[in-house]
């Protein structure tokens, strides 16, 4: 009787084991399906011109997306410079200062709510809070700008980075902190030398997720960065981005431009792939050097 029950449990357990493996398999299959499709539709249109030229306006020979690739890199760079430090330190606050419950508790809700704001709303906010005031203060003929776009992207990044950082810091065992404090380290030393480095790998995962999320955004840039067909590195002007250019081409009527849009998606994907690998390498090396020290 007992043996039968154990046997049943074992079979059930094995079945669940197989199911878990199947889950992982399904997710990987979906990845291959989506990215395989994107390669299939995009690869044919990637050539040297894609990386070296800017849009010509010509329907049969639409040029390339150099401006947009550079634009996206600069926009993401700007957004990261603001968004990552702010997000990480807010995450530290949520995790390490949570005894300040009067503020930390509500703040967690606030961060959660902010992660769910539709990106188009962030664009509207950027328009009202950055673009319109700039128009009133200056007499620039156009007040849409790369800065406004980067601000909108940072707005989306900050709560994501904050919440993932918090979750990862919470997973650092309490004993680490106690050990550090017991050895006479200050709280700042404990956080910077022990807690953050321990969670560095998983925080960088969170940062990649946040970066990836904003890298693919079109809606918040539409009313802030506006986009541009020109090669510009000055973020105080309307600023190009891959997603905006892709969106314009993908929704437009002309087949040659559409092909360029599909190629653009593939390039964006490849860029994120590289960032992903780079951060992962840094994180692994970081983890191994720490292990070496310990």
């Amino acid at each position: 009787m007992i043996r039968a029950r154990t046997e049943r449990r074992r079979i059930f357990s094995n079945a669940m084991f197989a199911l878990c493996a199947a889950c992982a398999g399904v997710i990987v299959a979906l990845l291959l399906a989506v990215s395989g499709y994107l390669v299939w539709i995009g690869a044919g249109s990637i050539n040297a011109a894609f990386f070296t030229q800017i849009p010509t306006g010509d329907l049969n020979d639409p040029g390339g997306m150099r401006h947009a690739i550079e634009g996206t890199i600069i926009l993401l760079g700007l957004a990261s410079v603001v968004g990552i430090p702010l997000g990480v330190s807010a995450g530290v606050y949520l995790s390490e200062y949570q005894h300040e419950w009067l503020f930390a508790g509500p703040l967690r809700f606030i961060a959660d709510v902010l992660t769910g704001v539709p990106s188009i709303v962030v664009g509207i906010l950027g328009y009202e809070l950055v673009v319109v005031p700039v128009a009133k203060m200056t007499s620039n003929s156009v007040s849409f700008s790369g800065y406004a776009g980067a601000a909108a992207l940072a707005f989306i990044m900050i709560p994501i980075v904050a919440r993932t950082t918090e979750e990862m810091l919470r997973l650092v065992p309490k004993s680490y902190r106690e050990g550090s404090l017991a050895l006479g380290a200050s709280k700042a030393q404990t956080v910077l030398r022990v807690v953050l480095p321990t969670a560095f790998g998983s925080i960088s995962t969170g940062v990649v997720l946040a970066l990836a999320r904003v890298a693919g955004e079109t809606a918040p840039l539409l009313f802030t960065a506006l986009g541009s067909r020109l090669l510009t590195r000055n973020p105080s002007e309307p600023f190009p981005s891959l997603t905006l250019q892709i969106y314009t081409y993908a929704t437009g009527p002309y087949p040659e431009q559409k092909k360029l849009a599909w190629a653009g998606i593939l390039v964006l994907l490849a860029m994120l792939f590289l960032v992903n690998i780079a951060i992962r390498l840094v994180a692994t090396r970081h983890a191994s050097t720490r292990l070496g020290k310990a």
Binding site: L31, R213, G216, Y247, L269, L272, N276, R280
Partner: peptide
């Protein structure tokens, strides 16, 4: 994680 990095447009 790479699946997470695919933009929503894609």
């Amino acid at each position: 994680e790479f699946l997470a990095a695919i933009p929503s447009l894609a």
